[in-house]
């Protein structure tokens, strides 16, 4: 069978391969090359070696964006996962209205990042001005909290669904055995349930970590990086370097930033996967 399928590769693989080359491979390779160049349009490209990279690390806005993004990623990953796990625990107790709660908590996921950002901007600005505080766009701390609330609101439902599926797969026999052995509810949670849902925890932390680190739409619409780039995250910083600044050097620097950003995402994903995978157990 394998032989006859193999002969059909132009039909089965070629369309995807061509689109993949146009939509990913070629832009990726070209992007790496351009990060070593000075250019404004693609017709006038001058190779200048690694100097773009040196300028990336001396760009304070990039360093600040990195700090902001790193802090936001850690805080939001913890918040979202703890809350989502907690709600999932509650919703697997066979309480009344489970389905309605699940529907409601998951709903914000379907709304796009730009729209979500504006909904929360309107709501939070109204609240802040009622309390006599500066608006989101004037206060970086409020911007940080706003982004955190927005992301939690959006992502908790998604992670909750994954945790519920994980918790439902924990065999009741295991829990019962632990109960007979005299384990307290807290021990059952930490010694039985959490180790058993470790695969779900791996996936959810991976998703929240990369979503927060790569956040763009919500950042653009909620605060736009205001005030004075203080709430700007890495993805928005790269975008702004590329399209918001005039000057022949900026596009090359933006591309170099993008390469650094890409490497950071890869490193973080690998570390996280290794760290949580090692804690997974077999039943």
């Amino acid at each position: 069978m394998e032989k006859s399928v193999r002969r059909y590769w132009p039909i089965f693989v070629l369309p995807t391969l061509i689109a993949f080359t146009i939509g990913f491979l070629w832009p990726f390779v070209w992007g790496i090359y351009l990060s070593f160049c000075k250019f404004q349009t693609v017709n006038k490209v001058k190779f200048i070696g690694a100097s773009n990279y040196l300028r990336v690390f001396s760009d304070n806005s990039f360093i600040h964006a990195f700090g902001f993004t790193a802090l936001f990623t850690v805080v939001s990953t913890l918040t979202i996962n703890i809350l989502a796990f907690f709600i999932a625990m509650l919703l697997t107790r066979r309480i009344k209205g489970t389905n309605i709660f699940r529907t409601v908590f998951f709903m914000p996921n379907l709304i796009g990042g730009i729209v979500l950002g504006y909904i929360w901007q309107i709501l939070l600005d109204c609240l802040l001005s009622m309390w006599g505080k500066p608006l989101l766009a004037l206060d970086a701390k409020a911007g940080f909290m706003g982004l955190l609330i927005l992301m939690s609101w959006q992502q908790i439902g998604y992670m909750m669904i994954i945790y519920i599926a994980g918790l439902q797969n924990v065999s009741p026999d295991l829990v019962e055995a632990a109960e007979i052995d005299g384990a307290t509810p807290w021990q059952i949670l930490t010694k039985v349930k959490i180790p058993m849902v470790m695969p779900s925890i791996t996936i959810c932390t991976f998703l929240t970590l990369t979503n927060s680190f790569k956040l763009f739409d919500q950042n653009l619409s909620l605060t736009g990086g205001e005030p004075a780039k203080a709430s700007q995250m890495l993805a928005l910083n790269i975008y702004e370097t590329y399209y918001g600044r005039s000057g022949a050097q900026w596009k090359g620097i933006g591309q170099a930033k993008a390469v650094v950003f890409f490497l950071l995402v890869v490193v973080i994903s690998l570390i996280q996967l290794r760290a949580t995978r090692s804690k997974e157990v077999q039943a």
């Binding site: 990913f24 070629w26 992007g31 693609v42 975008y239 950003f261 890409f262 995402v265």
Partner: peptide
């Protein structure tokens, strides 16, 4: 794994 920002400029030009 690759973030969109990595390819955004070159992808738009290719398109």
């Amino acid at each position: 794994v690759v973030p969109f920002q990595m390819v955004m400029f070159t992808l738009a030009k290719t398109a």
